[in-house]
């Protein structure tokens, strides 16, 4: 795989209300080579998506303050931006395939960083495919 895609055309949006966890998730994505945006809630995330069309991956926590939680955000993103790949994480609940938009991925907290890296690279490969 590697990093044979243009970062400007391919970005990840990290949505996480805990600043520490968000900082680590952002670092992880940057480390893999993605342009990375961060939001602390769904409302900020929607605003970023509206402004940055290069966002192709939504990596969101479920439990957050604000107008909607991560699962509703994922549904909303799938409806408004169908091509955006969905990655969801939670420490609270077990999420099944039925809770997620089609092809959505779930990672239980705390997640192994390698799994995230692998998933991001997989998505990048498909998008670039």
């Amino acid at each position: 795989m590697g990093q044979s895609f243009a970062p400007s055309r391919f970005a990840v949006l990290v949505v996480e209300d805990d600043a520490l966890l968000r900082a680590e998730a952002v670092d992880l994505c940057i480390e893999v080579g993605f342009t990375t945006y961060e939001a602390r809630n769904a409302d900020q995330a929607i605003r970023l998506l509206e402004r940055h069309s290069e966002i192709r991956v939504l990596f969101t926590d479920i439990e957050m303050g604000g107008s909607m939680d991560g699962l509703r955000l994922a549904q909303a993103v799938r409806e408004r931006w169908p091509p955006v790949a969905i990655m969801v994480t939670s420490g609270r609940r077990k999420v099944t395939k039925e809770d997620l938009p089609e092809n959505g991925l779930f990672f239980a907290k705390p997640y192994p960083p390698g799994d995230i890296v692998k998933a991001l690279n997989g998505i990048a490969a498909q998008v670039m495919g």
Binding site: D18, L20, L21, A23, E24, D27, L28, E63, G91, R92, A108, K109, P110, P113
Partner: peptide, 18 residues
């Protein structure tokens, strides 16, 4: 408690990784 424990572990993971 389970959630907080998971959250704490996630924080520990972030602190360690950072």
């Amino acid at each position: 408690l389970a959630h907080r424990m998971k959250n704490s572990m996630a924080m520990v993971q972030a602190i360690v990784t950072q």
